[in-house]
């Protein structure tokens, strides 16, 4: 094990999910940084940023290539991780990426009222744009779009070939207040309470850095 690593994989159980969105190509650097700070585990997925820009939209390149990193950390190293993210990845400056902490079930403290929340919206491929338009109407912008596969009907067989439906996942951070309205709107406009129309879930966020609208958000 590298001497610079402050903890090993199994020393302390993870109680926090540190999710980060950075420009495509910086995901590995971010994962290595967080592992060096003591993150127990980290994975990275390709994603697309959807922050609206009228000029980019006119040019047909409204989406920007991003990478989403999920790192599982212990609460004790959270401060060190955020300091490194600000210093080495410049996440404290707007436009360099965002990172935020989602408590896991093993989080030792009771979850008090948090200002921010994360939303995960999973729909069939092709409906992601509709969801983004709905969110735009609610003035919720800056979601991250991921390609995924469904597992509910993986066992379906057509002409002896297994069918794996493609999905789109929209991952976004927003103030907590409009999220109940967002869930209601998704239910009304996309019939999410009906089977196979998608799901939307929200999580508490205890800390965030680099958010688009507010620039910097502390604890």
């Amino acid at each position: 094990m590298n001497k610079e690593h402050k903890t090993t994989l199994t020393e302390k159980p993870s109680d926090m999910l540190l999710a980060s969105v950075v420009t495509r190509g910086k995901g590995s650097q971010l994962m290595n940084l967080l592992r060096r700070e003591g993150a127990a585990y980290a994975v990275c997925a390709f994603a697309e940023g959807t922050i609206p820009s009228h000029i980019l939209h006119m040019l047909g390149i409204a989406k920007t290539k991003k990478e989403l990193v999920f790192a599982f950390i212990n609460q004790e190293i959270e401060e060190a991780c955020y300091q490194s993210l600000a210093k080495e990845m410049k996440l404290d400056q707007t436009g360099h990426g965002v990172a935020f902490s989602i408590p896991l079930c093993s989080y030792p403290e009771p979850l008090t009222e948090t200002e921010l929340a994360a939303a995960f919206i999973i729909v069939d491929k092709g409906k992601g744009e509709d969801v983004l338009d709905l969110l735009d109407e609610l003035e919720l912008r800056g979601g991250t779009l991921l390609s995924a596969f469904g597992g509910a009907s993986m066992t379906d067989i057509l002409f002896n070939l297994p069918i794996q439906p493609e999905k789109e996942v929209i991952f976004m951070v927003a103030p907590k207040e409009p999220l109940p309205k967002m869930l209601r709107t998704l239910d009304e406009k996309m019939s999410m309470s009906q089977p196979h129309q998608g799901i939307a879930i929200t999580f508490a966020i205890t800390r965030a850095i680099g958010l688009y609208s507010e620039g910097k958000k502390g604890k």
Partner: peptide, 30 residues
């Protein structure tokens, strides 16, 4: 009653100058 699968790659335990990160499936189950 269902799952969503993301294709991801995993961080290595020891970062190297030239690294091949193993691919992983991240399964989300609500």
């Amino acid at each position: 009653s269902g799952a969503t699968i993301l294709h991801t790659r995993e961080a290595l335990a020891e970062p190297k100058s030239f690294q091949l990160e193993p691919q992983r499936d991240l399964v989300l189950i609500v």
